[in-house]
């Protein structure tokens, strides 16, 4: 790379292959200003508001029973949703990435479907299925089993919304790896599960980890879909984001942002995890790249 202070003739000679420094720094400034306005300021404001009345008020808001039950519900939901979508992600990526079959593109597109559906609609479909006037509603009422406005509904809506996350991290990576290594393992006498555990898994572990982390973050943070199916029963079917909403609408800003700050921290951890995973997976290639560049 060129050093920041470029000698005059060099700057002159290279101006048709790179931008002049002035243009470069202006573009950087505009990009950073935009990111600050849209991303950074809102993130900072979460913590600013949460600690506005001091650390004690902050912790009081988090320790409040309704908040605690919301946290518990959110953790429980994630604990059920993430393993389900993890298993699905592994199964789907195995059959899509390692095999060729008719309709593969359609299958891949359907996996992405929940991304294209409004979270509100994601909740709505379960109301239509299991709500009091839904398709299975009468049967559920007859057997005294609640799904909508109860925990199962929250889990279902969350599973739907976070459905593609693990699979999407794994499929491109596994496709890029190809099947030669697995074929080699099988030809050396490994059984299917051994092949997966010893050959495939080590190759995808970081992407898998990130998929799980992202799935977890979204599961804990899902708002729209859960909002439709939960019924907002305080202390019973309120997840953390719903609790934030209620507090905010009650003009209890500090408490709302205190709970929100927990979710924001979860988001930051997720971002850091993503960076680490990228670093882990791309570093070997980058190192090889730089060696190749030096060679020529």
């Amino acid at each position: 790379m060129t050093s920041p202070i470029i000698a005059e003739p060099a700057a002159k000679a290279s101006r048709t292959i790179t931008e002049p420094p002035l243009v470069k720094w202006m573009l950087i400034a505009i990009a950073l200003a935009f990111l600050a306005l849209v991303l950074l300021v809102p993130l900072v404001v979460v913590f600013d508001q949460a600690f506005e009345k001091g650390i004690e008020v902050y912790f009081a808001a988090i320790r409040e029973p309704d908040a605690l039950s919301a946290i518990r519900l959110t953790l429980l939901t994630a604990a059920i949703v993430v393993p389900l979508n993890l298993i699905f992600g592994l199964a789907a990526s195995w059959c899509i990435a390692k095999f060729d079959f008719v309709g593969k593109n359609i299958l891949t597109a359907i996996i992405d479907l929940p991304f294209a559906v409004s979270p509100v609609i994601s909740g709505l479909v379960f109301v239509l299925l299991f709500g009091a006037r839904g398709i299975f509603g009468p049967w559920l009422i007859a057997h005294d089993f609640r799904i909508i406005f109860a925990f199962p509904g929250i889990v279902l809506a969350t599973v739907f919304v976070t459905f593609p996350l693990v699979a999407r991290e794994l499929i491109p990576l596994m496709q890029a790896h190809g099947i030669e290594e697995e074929e080699a393992a099988i030809s050396l006498g490994a059984r299917g599960w051994q092949t997966f555990r010893r050959v495939t898994l080590p190759n995808i572990k970081w992407a898998l980890l990130y998929g799980v982390i992202l799935c977890n973050a979204r599961a804990m943070g899902e708002f729209g879909a859960v909002s439709v199916v939960s019924g907002h029963l305080r202390g019973l079917t309120n997840t953390m984001p719903l609790h934030v909403e209620i507090l905010y609408n009650e003009y209890n800003s500090v408490a709302a942002f205190a709970v929100a700050s927990l979710l924001a921290m979860l988001a930051i951890v997720t971002l850091i995890a993503k960076r680490l995973v990228e670093w882990k997976t791309h570093r070997p290639f980058q190192a090889a790249d730089s060696i190749r560049q030096e060679e020529d």
Binding site: L39, V45, M220, V244, A264
Partner: peptide
């Protein structure tokens, strides 16, 4: 860090993003 920040809207729960943007 800035590169990482770009993914914030993916990771930040939408309700949190919503109240934060409203406040700002």
């Amino acid at each position: 860090i800035i590169d990482g920040l770009v993914d914030l809207p993916f990771a930040l729960p939408t309700a949190v993003g919503g109240i934060a943007l409203t406040t700002v």
